[in-house]
Nucleic acid binder design. Structure first.
Lengths: 212, 212
DNA sequence: CATTTATTTAAACCAATCGGTCGAATCTCC
DNA sequence: GGAGATTCGACCGATTGGTTTAAATAAATG
């Protein structure tokens, strides 16, 4: 984790360094990302870099830590407060927030994707795994809470539902990014609401009866 | 596209070369994939490689072409045949097939993912884009047909529905791979059916009434 | 068998890039 | 002006990149 001196830099400078690095890492992986290119892009000299970080792995770990702080949703939310009546409105709000966050920082999903075949360098793999396991766990707990209060179907494992939801949501998000200006604002809003309704229908108990 | 001589090789040899290359490309991208490592893994000498391919880009294009042939589903299916009664059973069958195919060749999704920031080399980007646009188009036509016969809701764009479905499906597939032995066979089967039912509910028209 | 043609091999190539080091230059503040 | 903090970029050895080449082997041809 970055040398203490790093904390004394401008908040904005730190943000710029970490986010630019995050973009590189998320696009090319840990070993694939080039320190040289990154420093070019940052207009930062080698010497300065090694003044603030031990090495490449150190930078990566710092980036993951930063990503964790950014991605962490509403820390003020207590799962215990959620009952059947507020569960869905809350989750819809959360999804809106997350969408906005991922929308402005797309590298978050790229980083998360690094977890399938993770880097091999020393503490790097562990740092990654730990943080993102926490995120997954949080999402899963949320869904489990939904099951407990009857807002989410209980006949499928919570982690399966989580996977389906997140998968659809990421795809949906990409679609919205790509098609932002194909429709007018009202239509986008309508589509967005319908999509959230679809997510909800994915997780709720299915209608009891249906003819095959 | 590979030299003509390449076609005279064992079918199995060709398959091995192209699939190993596909794994590399899908994991590290076009520039990220190392020809040297690939040849090591293949126990193939440099000379032999350049005897069959012009260069790295040529290999890549050949791989994409091969992937396209593999991924192409049921070419004997005529969209015109699908009416409201057979649409869903057919699509469920198709999804099973595709799942099996992607399951044994996970690099297919990796290759597809290369389309977000695509390689820059000469004909490479175009080759990629063309083939995978065809796949997307095919899926989208299918959904549009579903809309036409009333099996799929028509109040959302077909490509949006496609994106959501494929996103959820890929995530679900990964979940099944990772949790294969957590449940017994019957349970897996049940889960799988429920998940397909969820996909169906994502695309069908929502129930007319619901209390907020 | 001889000779041509197809295929494979291993080494060499050279440019580029990698992460990392270092000593000197510059800045900041007393 | 002196001392510590910070910045700089040339430089390092090592590795890797994709590609070429000349010679060895195998297959085919007459």
């Amino acid at each position: 984790m970055a040398r203490p001196r790093f904390e004394k830099l401008d908040l904005e400078t730190r943000r710029r360094i970490l986010e630019t690095a995050a973009v590189e890492f998320s696009a090319r992986g840990f070993e694939g990302a080039s320190l040289n290119q990154l420093l070019d892009r940052l207009d930062l000299s080698k010497g300065s870099f090694y003044y603030y970080f031990d090495d490449k792995a150190d930078l990566f770990i710092t980036v993951v830590d930063y990503a964790w702080k950014v991605m962490l949703p509403a820390e003020d939310l207590d799962l215990g407060d959620l009952d059947a009546t507020v569960f869905w409105p809350t989750l819809e709000l959360l999804m809106r927030e997350t969408r906005a966050r991922v929308h402005e920082k797309p590298w978050l999903v790229g980083l998360a994707r690094l977890m399938y075949d993770p880097p091999e360098a020393a503490g790097v793999r562990e740092a990654l795994a730990e943080k993102f396991a926490e995120v997954r766990q949080w999402q899963e707990d949320l869904i489990r809470r939904g099951q407990h209060v009857g807002a989410v179907r209980s006949d499928l494992p919570a982690d399966l539902l989580r996977a389906l939801l997140v998968g659809a949501d990421e795809a949906g998000d990409q679609w919205f990014v790509a098609n932002w200006n194909r429709f007018d604002e009202d239509e986008i809003e309508r589509l967005s609401e319908e999509v959230v309704a679809i997510y909800r229908r994915m997780l709720e108990a299915p209608p009891a009866e249906r003819k095959s």
